[in-house]
Amino acid sequence: MALMINEDCTACDACRPVCPNEAISAGESLFVIDALRCTECVGANDEPQCKLVCPAQCIVANPDWPETREELEEKYQQLHS
């Protein structure tokens, strides 16, 4: 399942540089995660790096984008091949 950033985002920019898929960018008032690029760090790390560094704890699962671990692994391979 791709991740998303909720309204608690403080736009601190801690998450963007740690994303291995460059899925995070600045939006109008908060940062956003591109669900087509987010793999929850599957393929690169054991856990989502953005969630580890987020001081606002505003990164949550995107309920509109359900994916299995296998689908996330496949997406990661496609992004990095």
Rank of each mutant, 00 (worst) to 15 (best):
Y76R: 01
E71M: 08
P66E: 11
G27C: 13
C50N: 05
P20D: 01
K75S: 06
Q78W: 03
V53A: 07
E40N: 14
T39H: 06
E28F: 15
T68E: 15
E22Y: 05
N6L: 03
P48H: 08
I5F: 09
L79V: 14
T39K: 00
G27I: 13
R37Y: 12
C54P: 07
G43D: 07
Y76C: 06
C12K: 05
L3V: 05
T10H: 00
Y76H: 11
C41E: 06
D8V: 00
E70V: 10
M4K: 06
C58R: 06
N62A: 10
D46V: 07
S29M: 13
N45Y: 15
C19E: 00
L3K: 01
Q78K: 13
N6C: 01
P48E: 10
I24S: 00
A44S: 14
A26C: 01
A23I: 09
I59T: 10
C9G: 02
C38Q: 08
L79D: 13
N21G: 01
L52Q: 15
A35E: 15
R37T: 06
A35Q: 12
N6E: 07
Q57H: 15
S29T: 12
Q78R: 12
A56H: 09
C54L: 07
E67F: 08
D13M: 09
E71I: 03
A56W: 10
C50Y: 06
A26D: 14
E7W: 11
R16E: 10
P55S: 09
N45P: 04
P66H: 11
V32C: 09
E70N: 09
V32R: 09
P20F: 04
K51Y: 06
A14R: 00
N6I: 01
P17D: 03
V18M: 03
T68M: 09
